[in-house]
Nucleic acid binder design. Structure first.
Lengths: 250, 250
DNA sequence: GACAGTCGTTCTATAAAATAGAACACTACT
DNA sequence: AGTAGTGTTCTATTTTATAGAACGACTGTC
């Protein structure tokens, strides 16, 4: 218990608290941040100066504001992750072919994040960067179940039938149900590599109509297979390398 | 001098160094990071644990990897910035109308970052998230010049004619030249608000041909005017609010 | 024109916490 | 078995982050 408290770097946690707060409010002054986060003005100023020195924050008049640096790093992190590299183009392809929505979600500790989206209407609240709860969304739940041998604890109180989903995953490798409490039906399939590690999931929106259901489930299973095949083969992505290096001159 | 050194939060700087390193290499272990950053293994482990607790990093086997959390925050930060909210749709519009590339760049301390791009070929190295140097790119230089009354220091050694660009900005509100050493010609216009603060710039790619030049410069000036008009009026963006709140059900 | 209420910034003594470095547990390969 | 690698734990020491008050500048109001 003594060590657990000691190994956490408090100063960094404070810096991130400030950064996250700035992310919510766009622009704020030292006093407002200090009041919101219950920190002294002097300390907030020190952390903001540090963030500014590192290029994550800039000053506009007397207010501080995030720079787009996080965006660049976030996109770079996504490009580094195999899930996005292997699956993004296939998801677009399926979305276009089925004329429905497809989301690619990456599993994280406490939630899952949409890293690619295709075929969604422009007003959708499922765009890239959206985070969904692990236990309260189908795309999250399938990653949780596929990633661990034991099913989610009963106290999680999920609205889904965990045992049923597990059975569906064991049988078919996908599950069907509402994408989240706020969204309609979808078919969700976890993406596993050869070691059995779960990298995330794909969710394909289910249009109304019973014959669409079969087309979508088949397409989802095929999509999953093609993505996992790339994981297994350590896909060399020659194509993306070829285009990535191409310097563009207008 | 004593205070300057004291107000920087070293622990946070170390955490960000680890985070940035992870961003470059996708996935790495404690020892590798410690060696690269010349830190002790124990310390790297503490910082990684903190980042993991905060949800920015996850563990895959013995390696650590960034989560997509930065992506979500980066996109949210972009949505909060007025530059993106006011200018993104107009840039797309102009790109479609002229059938050329348009980039929207946000000014930061040491560089400028592409926060929106439209009409660029798929292999372009100018996508969202790209950072360009302030003095070695036209889109950066116009923000630098427009943002400060005095011209950039001579020792910056820019390949551009700063005085000439300043004259062009004073006269027309835009400048013409190579977008960067790696790219072709463009017309770049800084975006200023009513207080004279520079928020960034737009860069419109210049296709070959002399009559295209005039069309593009006129379109750029018009684009700048329309964006700045939204800054001046504190554009209420009813439209984006209306669509943003619309929960989408498949 | 002085006043009160802001703001961001600076400063310093004190207490808290980050750190280095060695030891530990575990795995893989020889 | 042995060696070399990993991530992790631990502790004593010193660095350093912190609270809180004072400062200077600015913006209104009376």
């Amino acid at each position: 218990m003594e060590y657990e408290a000691n190994r956490r770097v408090e100063a960094s946690a404070r810096t991130f608290a400030i950064l996250e707060r700035l992310c919510e409010v766009d622009s704020a002054g030292v006093s407002a941040l200090a009041a919101d986060l219950e920190m002294s003005k002097g300390i907030v100023h020190n952390h903001l100066s540090t963030l500014r020195e590192l290029g994550y924050v800039r000053k506009l008049g007397d207010d501080y504001q995030l720079t787009p640096r996080l965006l660049g790093q976030g996109l770079r992190a996504r490009s580094n992750a195999r899930l996005h590299r292997y699956a993004a183009d296939l998801c677009s392809e399926v979305a276009a072919h089925l004329t429905t929505g497809v989301v690619l979600c990456q599993h994280a500790a406490d939630d899952c994040t949409v890293v690619d989206a295709a075929g969604l209407p422009s007003g959708a609240d499922l765009g890239v960067g959206t985070t969904l709860p692990l236990t309260e969304s189908l795309v999250g739940l399938v990653t949780l179940i596929a990633g661990s041998a034991d099913e989610p604890p009963a106290d999680a109180g999920t609205a889904y039938d965990s045992a049923g989903i597990r059975a569906n995953l064991d049988a078919d490798g996908y599950a069907t149900g509402p994408l989240s409490p706020d969204h309609g039906g979808c078919v969700a399939a976890p993406i596993l590599d050869a070691d059995g590690d779960c990298h995330g999931s794909v969710g394909v929106v289910l249009p109304a109509g019973e014959q669409a259901r079969q087309r979508v489930t088949e397409a989802t299973a095929s999509l999953r297979d093609r993505i996992e095949a790339r994981f297994d083969s350590g896909w060399a992505d020659e194509r993306s390398f070829a285009t990535e290096k191409h310097s563009w001159v207008g």
